[in-house]
Design a protein around this nucleic acid. Sequence first.
DNA 1: CCTTGATCGTTCGGAGCCAAATTGTACGGG
DNA 2: CCCGTACAATTTGGCTCCGAACGATCAAGG
Lengths: 190, 190
Amino acid sequence: MPGHRSITEAEKLAAAKLGGIEIHREQMAVVANIYRAASAVRQHLENSVLRDADLTWTSFVVLWVVWVWGETETRHVAEEAGISKGTLTGVSRTLESRGLMTRAGHPSDGRLKLLSLTDEGEALMERLFPRFNQEEAFVASRLSDEECRSIAEGLRQVVRQVEEEGEERRLTLLDGAEPARRRSGRRAKG
Amino acid sequence: MPGHRSITEAEKLAAAKLGGIEIHREQMAVVANIYRAASAVRQHLENSVLRDADLTWTSFVVLWVVWVWGETETRHVAEEAGISKGTLTGVSRTLESRGLMTRAGHPSDGRLKLLSLTDEGEALMERLFPRFNQEEAFVASRLSDEECRSIAEGLRQVVRQVEEEGEERRLTLLDGAEPARRRSGRRAKG
DNA sequence: CCTTGATCGTTCGGAGCCAAATTGTACGGG
DNA sequence: CCCGTACAATTTGGCTCCGAACGATCAAGG
């Protein structure tokens, strides 16, 4: 693989570049590798089992959440799947049009919608999940069960930290200033 | 937080749902948490330091790579940043239009382009990186330095596994069959 | 020269994605 | 019954992203 640069080499270069700056090296490395690993895993799974089921990572995750939780309100599915409500509207509509999912109104609260799998969706997941899990095992095959457990637990700590203290932290950083507008997004009419 | 469902609760439900199926639980958990952590970290950083610099995660990573490596051919930047060549074309053009980056032709090979930072780009990174790193420390603040090191090392194993054996694995899975077409993407003309 | 094949970066179609604006429903107090 | 507030999903605008197709360039071998 000519011209290929390994991770650790990049990290060494970074350290050199940052010679004069005080940094949190371990924390930098863990964040960089979390993201790198996530991309690698997603790419492998999208290009293997998900590809021939014609599913994206996101649509698979949505199916998985509904499969595991059973009939669920959309806001919970969005949170559990880690996507915004707006994204879920589009994804779930696509899955509905493919006959894998139904979107029913809540019997007593007209604002809510309930997602559940069709029989076809259930069958797909029963067929697909074992293959998906097989590839999860493949990507993690250089780790022992014990290492998987401790890494997973460490990553949960990261998630909890952001979920429980992230918002407050962001407010502190702003320190009363106006939050900068996002470049994209809907504008006020008129 | 009414209606909120914790990670571990979801994992228990999953285990129940999958009672009859033989699965690799630890590997499933580690993959799920890698992705979850990556999303959480990205979201926190995009909504704090990157937001007021008006940068996305990807454009920051591209700037970072070129900052650390110095003048670099685009294909290497794409690989290092973990994005496709096509995406890099758009991102680097945006960064160029904002005066943060230059894209020069290679002196002896007309096919190549070389990316480097402008003075303004350098200045931005010198100002931005410490703040970025501060937030990396924030998200990892529930982990000790030692835990960060061992988690980062574990994640590198995942990345290496996919990089070194992923392609062969995907070919094995296909077992001679035609690779399924992607739903999106450019079609042959005519 | 002139192929032929490999390898760049770029283009482009289709999907994903967020956050703000909007629409629709629920429910409490006049 | 009619407000006003709260909260649900949806719409919308602008961008990101991938990967296949493409055009340009290079290098090797007639």
